[in-house]
Design a protein around this nucleic acid. Structure first.
Lengths: 103, 103
DNA sequence: CCTAAATATGCCTTGACAGGAATATTCCCT
DNA sequence: AGGGAATATTCCTGTCAAGGCATATTTAGG
């Protein structure tokens, strides 16, 4: 499953939202979200295989945290589209300027 | 289908990639991608309903173009994660500075 | 009005994924 | 080594989306 598909499931975006605040154990995530433990574990597996999160063992817990690299790739994908709205804003600006000069 | 799911299908990302260059008719997209026409039309429908593209009729053609608003929302979603790697870079910078001072 | 071009829609099949429950595994502690 | 906590995996089922094909719809032009 590729990066975009991985973000398709709302539950996984919720998980990322939680991990954005701080790294978490699986049980912490289970509490934060309202999902059962196997479900969370499975979603974490998907996110891990998609490169969005990594794990480290800490005692008998497994702590998941975000993996910046994947997010940078998202950013890179999105970047070329950004000029879409900057161009848009430029046009708006020019438009406003013309109005300004007219009064 | 929500925005992220809409981006899940590779074919749809290809379509967006084409439309990024310039607005296109359906047939132009069919040629650019290697997909059959009904498939392209259906993907365009999904993208339109997800707010990524808009259409205007021009003669007997339908010209599709990107819709900036939806991309801005993606940007907004991604923004909070951006500090992930800026923090990362800061840490790297401090690390390098310490190394620098030591020599 | 009729035809052809451009596009959209309906239908069907196949495959994949999410959710839930039960069970398996791993790891720590004593 | 045994027990319990934390997590992972398996199996099952319902649902939904993608692809391919046939067909319907729209629109321009003669």
């Amino acid at each position: 499953m590729d990066a975009f598909e991985a973000l398709g499931a709302p539950t996984r975006r919720q998980i990322l939202g939680e991990l954005k605040r701080s790294p978490r154990s699986v049980n912490d995530l289970v509490d934060a979200l309202s999902a059962n433990q196997p479900s969370v574990s499975k979603h974490l597996k998907v996110l891990r295989e998609a490169g969005f999160v990594s794990v480290r063992g800490e005692g008998q817990q497994r702590i998941y945290q975000l993996e910046p690299a994947r997010f940078r790739e998202l950013e890179a994908w999105l970047a070329p589209y950004r000029q879409l709205w900057t161009r848009h804003l430029d046009a708006l600006e020019r438009h406003l300027e013309r109005k300004e000069k007219r009064r």
